[in-house]
Design a protein around this nucleic acid. Sequence first.
DNA 1: ACTTGATGTTATGTTTCTTTTACATAGTGT
DNA 2: ACACTATGTAAAAGAAACATAACATCAAGT
Lengths: 77, 77
Amino acid sequence: MSGKAGSGGRIVNQIRTLRFLHGEMSQAELGERIGVTRQTVAAIEAGKYSPSLEAAFRIAEVFGKPLDEVFQWEPSG
Amino acid sequence: MSGKAGSGGRIVNQIRTLRFLHGEMSQAELGERIGVTRQTVAAIEAGKYSPSLEAAFRIAEVFGKPLDEVFQWEPSG
DNA sequence: ACTTGATGTTATGTTTCTTTTACATAGTGT
DNA sequence: ACACTATGTAAAAGAAACATAACATCAAGT
């Protein structure tokens, strides 16, 4: 349900910015804190695929933000 | 990352209530509107597993609510 | 009694997310 | 030059989400 072209929407995220605002937290440290690998963080951050809801909640928790300030849903078009 | 016992948190949802508040919308109709089957809706609603972030956003969109009013993250314990 | 709609559940298969391992570049410090 | 850290990327394998099909109960409605 994730990467299909015109299927009706996409997800953008603010992870890169939030890492910057938290003292240039590395992808590795973020991954460690939420329980995924750095490669997974890199893929999510780059928008290669969208994370599980659980991973999304954990990321938001690390940055002390509500989920919808980290991930935004862009409806179809 | 989802169903592990003491791994640090769980996700609860308000789908049943929101379906009720929207004229007893059926699981089948909700599934149809977000692009998943009724079995998948049933499983998510029952907490058997948590949805993808994309599916979660779509559900919130159907009910006209922000995502965190539909799904709540319960940190570890 | 029969049908219909809504839900529960189980089994099997596919897709997507994630891990692991590995190799790569660029920057920084010694 | 050498080590060390951060990041990019990719193949292969595993885990979780999702599909499809089938069979079940229960509550209406006719």
